[in-house]
Structure formats: structure tokens, C-alpha cells
């Protein structure tokens, strides 16, 4: 067991972990940041998406030893001043959420997209969330919510 200081959502978390443990398991089981979900644990479904130094990554296939000295952002870190992020608001109000299990991963992929490209086209939105499987919505309302969050016209 090694000791890790992890920078997550602007805070420093101290934890013991085996070097080969996934960032996702450490977030969920050790730090109790359970917003990031485990849908497959093999990098296929996108439910565990977090940002690492601003880029979306799959935390289930990233070892905790790989994120030393780097900035991790999870869905819990998005609200500012106690207010939900506009992506979280639009996803809620426009029917982008059904079972909700893919939701944190989708929101993080979308957040990363909007940081890079504040006014994405529909195709760019669909491409950005192509690694996030959603089984409930057929993606339409997610795309609408992200267009609304970006302030771009909704089809």
C-alpha cells in the first residue's frame, strides 16, 4: 500500500492505495466520490469519465499511480458556489436524464467539449459523447440539453 496525495476538484485528498488500483476505485471506494460510475470497468462504456488536466479520461482504466501531481475533476466538482453547472441544469430540465447512470460521464465529456469548443455543432456534440453509452434516452434529449447549455440552436 502506497500513500497518495491526489488533487481532486480543487482539494487535496490523502489516501492509501495499491499503485495498480484504478482511479475510479480509489475515487469511489476510498474517497467516497461515487458520482463517477462503474458501468463496465474495462473502458468501454464511459460512465466513469472524469477530467485529467482538463482532458476527458476513463478513470476505470487509469491507475491511481498515473495521476500523481495532476488535476482531477469529477462531476462533484462542477457546481460553483452551491449552484449546479448549466450542463447539469439543462440535463435535468430537458429530459436528458432517465436512469441517470451514464449521466455523470456524459456531463464530464460534455464539460470537456465546451471548455475546448464553447459553441459546438450537433455533430461535434454527438462525437464528443460517442464514448458514453446511454441505454435509456436514445441520446436526442442529451444532445438538446448540451446545445442549450452551449447556447446553440436546438433542432
Amino acid at each position: 500500500m502506497e500513500h497518495y496525495s491526489l488533487k481532486i476538484n480543487g482539494h487535496v485528498y490523502e489516501t492509501g492505495a495499491e499503485p495498480f488500483e484504478s482511479l475510479l476505485d480509489v475515487l469511489r471506494e476510498k474517497l467516497r466520490l461515487t458520482g463517477s460510475k462503474k458501468g463496465c470497468d474495462e473502458g468501454e462504456c464511459g460512465s466513469c469519465t472524469v477530467l485529467l488536466d482538463g482532458k476527458p479520461v476513463l478513470s476505470c482504466i487509469l491507475m491511481v499511480s498515473d495521476v500523481r501531481d495532476r488535476e482531477v475533476l469529477t462531476v462533484e466538482g462542477l457546481p460553483q458556489g452551491g449552484e449546479p453547472h448549466p450542463i447539469q441544469v439543462e440535463m435535468t430540465e430537458r429530459g436528458g436524464i432517465q436512469c441517470g447512470y451514464c449521466t455523470p460521464g456524459i456531463i464530464m465529456s460534455a464539460y470537456a467539449l465546451l471548455q475546448e469548443n464553447p459553441r459546438p455543432s450537433e455533430d461535434e456534440i454527438r462525437f464528443a459523447i460517442a464514448g458514453n453509452i446511454c441505454r435509456c434516452t436514445g441520446y436526442s434529449k442529451i444532445v438538446e440539453a448540451l446545445q442549450a447549455a452551449a447556447g446553440t440552436p436546438i433542432r
Partner: peptide
Amino acid sequence: SSVPKVDALDKALGITQYVGDMQ
């Protein structure tokens, strides 16, 4: 009326506890 789902905001915030999130 298309009221937002009663459980949706918690899901967006990552607060909702599914079984796998519980300890």
C-alpha cells in the same frame, strides 16, 4: 406538463446513491 423528473437533479449532481455506491 413536462415537469423535470423528481430524481433528475440529484443524478446530474452525482449525489444519487445506487447500490454500488453504498458502503
